[in-house]
Nucleic acid binder design. Structure first.
Length: 269
DNA sequence: ACTGGATCCTGATCGC
DNA sequence: TGCGATCAGGATCCAG
């Protein structure tokens, strides 16, 4: 379920309970993920004091005094803080006792990962990443420059991590609708001005989603509830056949780059 | 160098 | 109710 806003919400949600505390016990129940959890995960994390929890792209970074974890939630991963006596669920890969709570990594589809940030694999993953969408480095001119020799659909283009990180399938469709740009349009056939609009809409939609996600921070402790941004009103995503809120035209769907995509053929050109 | 497509895995949902 | 087919919010890898 995680797009950038959920990873950000997770980082903000667990940070206050981790920072300043030590990992009292660490247990790996199921090491199998996108890449295996390192064999020395428990040993190396044990008794480490947590210094910070942050996000880069859709990666969660947990820094301790002597090491740092790089984690991705994939399609179905989550971190939850629970009371240590909470019954284990299937697909609870790791249990980390920290203070009076237990941090659990849960991932049914196993597309996520838990790696040491200083490993070759983690370095390689991080080194390919483009700018953060909410940073000043990400702008219309950046998109314009990056797109000049690229003929792929603009939707696939903005979902490319080397171009900009954190734009997933939902917010790609949403930001293109808000910009009036058709998702199938070739990336190199969009003007600098239109990329200016698109960059701004990406920033706005992600910022709004993070705000909504922030309303459910307390739920991480109880291990209940879903992030609030799901209830936010989506313009096009998943609204196939329903009417466009701007022009009443039925919302279309089409597979672009292997992913289902939603748009209004009237409002987006 | 780019691009589209296959691929990893389990669970929820839908049609029959 | 049961069962198989289909699809899912990611991103890497590979063939053309």
């Amino acid at each position: 379920m995680p797009e950038l806003p959920e990873v950000e919400t997770t980082a903000r949600g667990i940070a206050p309970f981790l920072v300043g505390q030590s990992f009292i016990s660490v247990r790996v129940n199921q090491p199998s993920l996108r890449w295996p959890i390192p064999a020395d995960f428990s040993r190396r994390l044990l008794n480490e004091s947590c210094l910070s929890v942050s996000r880069r792209a859709k990666y969660l970074l947990i820094e301790t005094e002597n090491t740092q974890i790089l984690s991705h939630l994939g399609m179905s991963g989550s971190f939850r803080l629970v009371s240590p006596n909470t019954p284990l669920k299937i697909h609870d890969h790791v249990q980390m006792r920290i203070g009076d709570l237990e941090l659990r990594y849960h991932d049914p589809r196993r597309f996520g990962c838990l790696l040491w940030a200083d490993s070759d694999r983690a370095r390689q993953l991080i080194s390919q990443l483009g700018p953060e969408p909410l940073s000043d480095a990400f702008s219309g001119s950046w998109l314009y420059e990056q797109s000049r020799r690229r003929s792929l659909a603009v939707k696939s283009f903005i979902m490319t991590n080397a171009v900009v990180v954190g734009v997933g399938n939902i917010y790609a469709s949403e930001s293109l609708f808000l910009s009036g740009i058709h998702p199938s349009r070739a990336a190199n056939r969009i003007s600098k001005d239109r990329y200016g609009v698109l960059a701004e809409e990406i920033k706005k939609v992600l910022a709004r989603a993070i705000e909504s996600g922030g309303t459910t921070l307390r739920d991480f402790v109880n291990g209940q509830g879903e992030p609030g941004y799901f209830q936010q009103t989506l313009s096009v995503y998943g609204r196939n056949g329903e009417r466009c809120r701007q022009c009443e035209e039925p919302i279309q769907s089409r597979v672009i780059g292997g992913r289902n995509s939603y748009f209004c053929r009237q409002c987006q050109r």
